[in-house]
Every structure is written in C-alpha cells, then in structure tokens.
Simulated assay, not measured.
Amino acid sequence: MSTVALAVRDSGTMLRRSLLRMRRYPSMTFMLIGMPVVFLLLFVYVFGGTLGNGLGAASGGHEAYANYVVPGILLMAIAGTAQGTAITVAMDMTEGIIARFRTMAIFRPSVLTGHVLGAVVQTMLGLAVVVGIALLVGFRPNANPVEWLAAAGVLAMTGVALTWLSVALGLAADSVESASNLPMPLVLLPFLGSGFVPTESMPTAVRWFAEYQPFTPIMETLRGLLLGTGIGADAGAAAAWCAGITVVGFLWARRRYNRNTAR
C-alpha cells in the first residue's frame, strides 16, 4: 500500500474514532454548544435593547443587536470546540493510548489528523445549531446562497486554524487540567474585539488591540457576508491570520507529537 493510501485509510479510521467519542460523550458536545447559546440569549435579551440602540442603525433594539452579535457568538463556539479538542488530545497523551498506537503499523500523523477532522465536523454541527437558535431570537441575515457558502468557508477555515492550535496546546500541556485552561484566551478574544460592541466605542489602547487581533477581521468578514455591510480588506486579513495560525499550530503540533512519541 502506498504512503498516500495508508495516510488516507488511517486518517479515516482516526476520524471515526473521534466521531465515536463525540457520540459516546454527548455531555461535552452539549456543553460546548450550550455556552455560546447561553451568551447569545444573555446578550440579546438582557443587554440587546440598550446595546442595539447604541449601534446607530435605523432600527435598534434586540433585533439590531442580534444581527450584530451573532458573528462573535460563532467565533466563541469555534473557540469552545477548540478547547474541547485540547482536552481530548491531552487525554490521549496521558492515558497510554499513544503507546499502543506506536506498536501498530499505522501512519503516525493520522492520530492528529483524526482529531482535527473530528473537531471540524463537531464545530460545523455546533455552528449549525447556534445559527438556528440565532434565527429564532431575531437574527435576520440577507445573504444569498453564494455568500452563505463563503461564510461557511470562513468558519471552516477558522475552525481548522484554531483546531491545529488547540492540538498543539493539548500536546504541550502537562495534564488534562492544564489543557482545559490553555485555550481559554481564545474564548475571550471575541470580547476584546468587535464581537459584542464596535471597536470605535473602546478606549484607545483597547481599541488598538481589538482592531489588530485575529478575530476582528474574521468577525467583520462574516458580518459583511451575512448582512451586506461590506468586507473591504477584512477578508484578506482573515485569510492571512487563519493561514498563519494553521501553519504555526501544525508545525508546533507535529514537533510536540514527534517528541512525545519518541520517548
């Protein structure tokens, strides 16, 4: 069997393993989806009236704020799944399963590839649930089918980037507990960007960080695609950030995995 065929076969096996784990431990999936849903309901129904009126839109209130906040909630959902991926990777590294894989004739990187593919599938399913609930609470996108596909591509691209980074964090963690904490800043980044309020309303120092951190151009690209507010240079910046994070996460994960499995 060729190396490519072996890689595809074993990566598919590891993907099925990740999906089976997701089915056997539904509580983690519910938790990862439940957190962004809770934040969505909280911000739309508790803070949405005031914040929506402050957006300067023709029609303020809950509906206007629901349209504004959904891209930030979607990024929170992706970051939450990335946190779960770091935990599962750390579990693999500490529970001895990797030692068993080392005795088998498998394509070694397929273990990481299975985690990444499984996490992306879980992410996209979770995002579909979040978008469905957002539509129920007042989210009203005006995107056409092509723009919806482009938005899904941006979300998938972001999911791949954060998943590779979370795999590296899970490999670098000393324990499962520390693996659950290392990706936490990813969950907080939408708050320090344009996820919940426009960056123009922030103090100068915070505004500078918010405008130049990776999540802001991703969220602005999603708003432009789903709501027709314009994209400008945000799409290029979002693609560049995702590509950079993916490369760094992949190289870091591969190095840590090779080091850990060589012991």
Rank of each mutant, 00 (worst) to 15 (best):
V46N: 11
W164H: 00
G96V: 09
A235M: 10
A86N: 05
Y45Q: 14
V146F: 14
A77I: 04
G118I: 01
G118A: 06
G52T: 05
G232N: 08
G228C: 07
P141V: 04
S2F: 06
T246M: 06
T221G: 06
S175F: 08
S194F: 04
R207F: 08
L186D: 02
Y257F: 15
A143G: 04
M219R: 04
L55D: 07
R223N: 02
V154F: 01
A152T: 13
F107S: 10
Q213K: 05
T103F: 06
P141Q: 08
A119F: 02
T50F: 14
L171Y: 00
T88H: 11
P71C: 04
V187W: 12
G52F: 02
A233C: 05
L251I: 10
V176A: 03
W208K: 05
D174E: 12
L75N: 13
V137Q: 11
T81N: 13
R24N: 13
R140M: 07
G80P: 01
F250N: 00
A253K: 01
H62S: 13
A205G: 09
F139W: 12
R263T: 13
R223I: 03
G56D: 03
T3E: 15
Y65I: 01
S110R: 01
G84I: 00
S110V: 06
L41F: 14
S201D: 15
L192Y: 15
S59T: 11
I133W: 08
V70Y: 03
G232T: 13
W208H: 12
S180N: 11
R254E: 10
L182N: 07
L127C: 05
